[in-house]
């Protein structure tokens, strides 16, 4: 098992250097002089430019610059934001819990609804329920989520007035961040109504972000279940006279879930892409909104750092999924 894990980590090393190289190239590929771009509209004097060239290492050979950049990454140095003057890594770490909370709620919602829906559709294959569930899943899978978010805002916030339109919590509440997860922090604060306020802010963005993963998980669960339900061991379990619930829940589901776990892991990329759109629409103060704002502010060190960190998160999660997959499916481990 250790060899399997080390092998997977070994495969990541070239990808890691590739990803850092892409992030490194980003600022150098922008049209125009990188320093003038970083200075923005205020411009920069020739003396200051020469000084910055040396300070930021732009006068060194290309490969030396890349090496310095990689060494910097290992020391936690992702540069400084030109807008806030704060280190990019600090900003990322401050904002990441907001995105993580949203993404976690979305994936929990998607798994809790998607797996039962998929099982039900597979067991009742060809029925009205199967067609309705799969039809709905296909609509969800095809949904432009930025439009879906706007529709939900019009209906639930505009017409019914049930949910707030933006932010993580009402401005009435103020308490120190402990975990960075608003639901937990609001509970810890003991302020009356704070938890409900945080929850009501979280509902619509979570639904929007969960839509595509939910559809994918439901479709994947159904097809995995259908495959497993046709296997000999399921027939044997049925022939032994086991109740259908036990056959489906114990014999079939355990094996059907193996590909579903991979699918859930692959949704991390989908969630982070979705977070860019969802956070922008709901003014959710997370990584996605931060990146979009940095792009429009031309705060390119932030974009560079954010790009790298997000790719890092996806790589780590994919590694965990790979290892988990090997853990529950020995055939993969031994190949």
């Amino acid at each position: 098992m250790l060899r399997f894990i080390l092998g997977r980590i070994g495969l990541l090393i070239p990808t890691f250097f590739g990803v850092t190289f892409v992030a490194f190239l980003f600022i150098r590929l922008l049209p125009g002089d990188p320093l003038e771009l970083l200075a923005g509209e205020r411009g920069i004097s020739p003396e200051r430019k020469a000084q910055l060239m040396v300070q930021m290492g732009f006068d060194k050979p290309f490969l030396q610059q890349y090496w310095d950049y990689v060494v910097g990454i290992f020391h936690g140095d992702l540069g400084v934001s030109f807008a806030s003057k704060k280190p990019v890594l600090d900003e990322f770490l401050t904002l990441f819990p907001a995105t993580a909370e949203l993404a976690l709620c979305a994936i929990i919602l998607a798994v809790c609804l998607g797996i039962p829906a998929g099982i039900f559709a597979a067991v009742k294959r060809g029925s009205f329920f199967d067609q309705t569930i799969m039809g709905t899943a296909l609509v969800g899978y095809s949904m432009p989520i930025f439009w879906w978010a706007l529709l939900l805002i019009v209906f639930f916030s505009g017409t019914l007035g049930w949910t707030p339109v933006s932010g993580r919590i009402s401005l009435m509440y103020f308490f120190p961040q402990v975990t960075g997860f608003m639901l937990i922090d609001s509970l810890l604060s003991g302020e009356k109504g704070a938890f409900l306020s945080a929850l009501s802010h979280l509902i619509l963005p979570s639904i929007v972000l969960a839509t595509i993963p939910l559809a994918v998980i439901a479709r994947q669960t159904r097809s995995a279940m259908l495959e497993v339900l046709g296997e000999d061991y399921v027939r044997t379990a049925r022939a032994k006279g086991l109740p259908p619930r036990r056959v489906i829940g114990l014999h079939a589901l355990r094996n059907a879930l193996i590909p579903v776990i991979t699918t859930i892991g692959l949704q991390v990329g989908v969630l982070l892409t979705g977070a860019i759109l969802t956070e922008t629409i709901f003014s959710w103060p997370g990584i996605g909104k931060w990146l979009i704002e940095s792009i429009s502010r031309r705060d390119y060190t932030v974009v560079q750092g954010g790009l790298l960190m997000i790719a890092g998160v996806i790589m780590v999660v994919n590694l965990i999924v790979d290892v988990l997959y090997g853990l529950i499916n020995p055939r993969i481990r031994h190949n």
Binding site: P14, T15, G18, V19, V22, G269, V270, L272, T273, I276, L277, L291, L307, I310, A311, I314, M315
Partner: peptide, 10 residues
Amino acid sequence: DIILSFPALL
């Protein structure tokens, strides 16, 4: 692999 490490939209 490197291209796949980034979210598509980003």
